[in-house]
Design a protein around this nucleic acid. Sequence first.
DNA 1: CTGAAAGCGCTAACAG
DNA 2: CTGTTAGCGCTTTCAG
Lengths: 336, 336
Amino acid sequence: MAEISIRDLAKELKLSIGTVSKALKDSHEISIPTKEKVFALARQLNYIPNPYASSLRGKKSNTIGVVVPEIADSFFSHAIKGIESVAQGKGYHVLIYLTDESFLKEEFILQDFKSGRVDGVLLSISSETSNILHIEQLKKKNIPLVLFDRTVEEISTTKIITDDLESSYKATHHLLKRGCRKISFLSISRHLSINNKRIEGFLKALSDHQAGACRNNIIDCTNDNKQNQAILHKILQSAERPDGIIASVEKLTIPVYLACRELQLNIPRDLKIISFSNSEAAPVMNPSLTTVTQPAYEMGKRAAIILFKAVEKKNFKMPNENIVIPSSLFIRSSAE
Amino acid sequence: MAEISIRDLAKELKLSIGTVSKALKDSHEISIPTKEKVFALARQLNYIPNPYASSLRGKKSNTIGVVVPEIADSFFSHAIKGIESVAQGKGYHVLIYLTDESFLKEEFILQDFKSGRVDGVLLSISSETSNILHIEQLKKKNIPLVLFDRTVEEISTTKIITDDLESSYKATHHLLKRGCRKISFLSISRHLSINNKRIEGFLKALSDHQAGACRNNIIDCTNDNKQNQAILHKILQSAERPDGIIASVEKLTIPVYLACRELQLNIPRDLKIISFSNSEAAPVMNPSLTTVTQPAYEMGKRAAIILFKAVEKKNFKMPNENIVIPSSLFIRSSAE
DNA sequence: CTGAAAGCGCTAACAG
DNA sequence: CTGTTAGCGCTTTCAG
């Protein structure tokens, strides 16, 4: 079953290739009867245009690239869902790449994008990313880029974020109200501005509350689960054991719960916890988890919508701005 | 910054286009010094080949398509992670499409694949899919296809599945052992063989246990959360209230927990529950959730590895077989 | 309204 | 070892 091409249609209909091409695009310069004949035959022979030929010719791939550190994470999976839904609506294709928190992978992937493989890029940077040359290079190639969630201030483009500082402030404030006096903040990477904003909110809440200087309440976690477990065990067993924890990222939640269980610490009595999490299981956890929940799906959607504006409108100048969609604090038993 | 092409390299080096092309592919018919010059200039000018030109020429996209019903689900997100990891290792690109359980979307997406956009396809069908013409048509185009998890027996290709019947049997058996006598099975779609296998295992366990005929213990749920909630409330309030539940799919778990809470039913005392779930939160749920956990990541990986075999080896005949990777039953408090 | 022709960037014969 | 050439399938001037 040889692929049938525009040429085959032309031959069959005794028309020129150019005419058929225009007819298929419903060009106004083609007569109605001709168009009808072309459409009819195309349908009959089940003609499907070769996307790579069009892409080569038109320098347009109808494809966007999505680069995220992780996918087995409710935030990212919901964000991707949002992205995919708008892409599908627009007839675009979505290439997914996982950096797995590796700067090298991220660099490699963006490097490839310079080829014109994608018409636009949605990026949430890896936790290792501090050097941003690869991102600037991509921008220099005039490939539209929207950053979401894990953004980089220095890159001039539109960024979709949530109110990290404020929501972290609120979370911390809530713990303080509930009587916590030794709150630890589980940090995921000092390279991530999103993480640092959350730290800022945390510290601001502490100082506003006159809780005094906080020595070492910021715990640097890693990308390695085992290591994190060890870290958690250590701090939960120390004399300086915290009475409150803010987990700045979803994947640290379960380890905290498990560590508490092993060490026979009662949540919320001995330790209150609030997580940045989009997990649907939060309300049925034991105890139910107080969360800062990000508008993941919405963020993905917005990011995609803005990206497509830049992709579709010629000389659309991507504004250098932060679009902030607020998170919600859901108070549940873990921080009662 | 005009894109630099193979022609620019050739001009600059006073070589022919063909020579440069071969040099870049490290062809043995090019002298070492020439290759070195070519590589040097390519690096210096930051030459990046146009993928669509190669694809058009070579009828090879270096891209695979992944079609799944959902992504905000631990099974699928982990499976995709497995797929992406092998694709990335092979230098392939991954197009993701969500059908959102819609047959029409699935049909449309596979239709597009006939264009040659992808070199191979990984598919997990939608819950609406009963007609499989679109899949067979894809196969007719000689596009390698591997089905995973939600497969179709009738399609002759390799399928990566788990031991649905057996694991469902074990789960049911466990509930019976714990004293359940009225077990309801929450079914997601009678079109899905995976669902039906689980039902089979369920019924077999019941009959092996001589629990007698089971009237209407199979509850047909839908894709709509609200509706499912209503259904659950109804059965949990009825006189015939079950004392055990098997949730054949992760997303039904939380609704059951919430319904029980509202109706003041104690899990596991009044109702025991086992879910097919890959949620990492299972051990910290209230009560901790007994799960049948599928080897999601492994399944994705295996599916991809086999797909690449077919994609890369010419005349590789995809065996028509089921590759079964077993699930694990994790017994926790919800079914004590 | 339709046709002819050039060419997107690359690859692979084939020739030399 | 290097060069020439003919396309892959499509779009888009430009003529007619």
